[in-house]
Design a protein around this nucleic acid. Sequence first.
DNA 1: ATAATAAAAGATAAAAATATCTTTTATTTT
DNA 2: AAAATAAAAGATATTTTTATCTTTTATTAT
Lengths: 144, 144
Amino acid sequence: MFSKACEYSIRATIFIAQKSKDGDRLSIKEIANGVDSPEHFMGKILTELSRKGLVLSVKGPHGGFFMDEKCLKHTLADVVTAIDGNQLFTGCGLGLKSCNEHKPCPIHDEFKIVRTKLKSLLETTRIGEFNESLEKGLVFLKRN
Amino acid sequence: MFSKACEYSIRATIFIAQKSKDGDRLSIKEIANGVDSPEHFMGKILTELSRKGLVLSVKGPHGGFFMDEKCLKHTLADVVTAIDGNQLFTGCGLGLKSCNEHKPCPIHDEFKIVRTKLKSLLETTRIGEFNESLEKGLVFLKRN
DNA sequence: ATAATAAAAGATAAAAATATCTTTTATTTT
DNA sequence: AAAATAAAAGATATTTTTATCTTTTATTAT
């Protein structure tokens, strides 16, 4: 469904949203450990997310990644779009470039329902909305 | 969503279902042309689909790929599973191996609804059910 | 039997995604 | 100012996916 980079991105943004309270900053290593991802790969991803404005970062001692109110308001759809693009939300299920309402692929309409459902799920879910359930141990971002 | 191989597979099986009437057999080239896919890649895919029993084939002159009643009854879910496996239907949206009801990822329940919807759509759609709309030009399997 | 046909199988190549390692730049603390 | 820290950037490696090319095998028609 999503690329590895995108899966890591979602896990990382949710993680940062929860952990970077009151100006606290997280290092790449902390984030990679926190969401079970390869450290250097996570570095690349975080730089990209930062470039796209989904997370904030500062270099140097006590630097790291964090979020402000604006970041916290971003949705999972924003993260997916930033990393995987909008192909999943707009593309044809069978990969036909020319597929559209007037020239539909065989599963066009049915697929669109599912795709729209997925899109709306991601668009209505904000990065910062899992803080409480994460703290309570009701949901998880890694193996253990 | 699906791999390229899977997209080609779905297009190919629907194509064969429509074109291989009364024992007619289609060559790799005909199929590749019919669904806009690379010819040799299509050859690999068709061999795999044949191995999994989703299409039938015979070698030699007037050989090619075709389907019997049993093949036509297969669903799109069968094709997806044969080529991409069941990860899309069963795996965690965020790629967590240990994600399950007791240890859910943050989007576990919501994602499951979409996944189940997709699964049921593919499971209730049979390879052979588009013959008529393809002939009428209501749906398409390639660009032109 | 021989030649022709077409899938099957195998080998190779190219591209993309994933992952790792090293160097540079910005920032902070001493 | 110098040292330490941590992200940014760049380079390299590995793996997977996609694509192409060649050889082999099975079947049919002559």
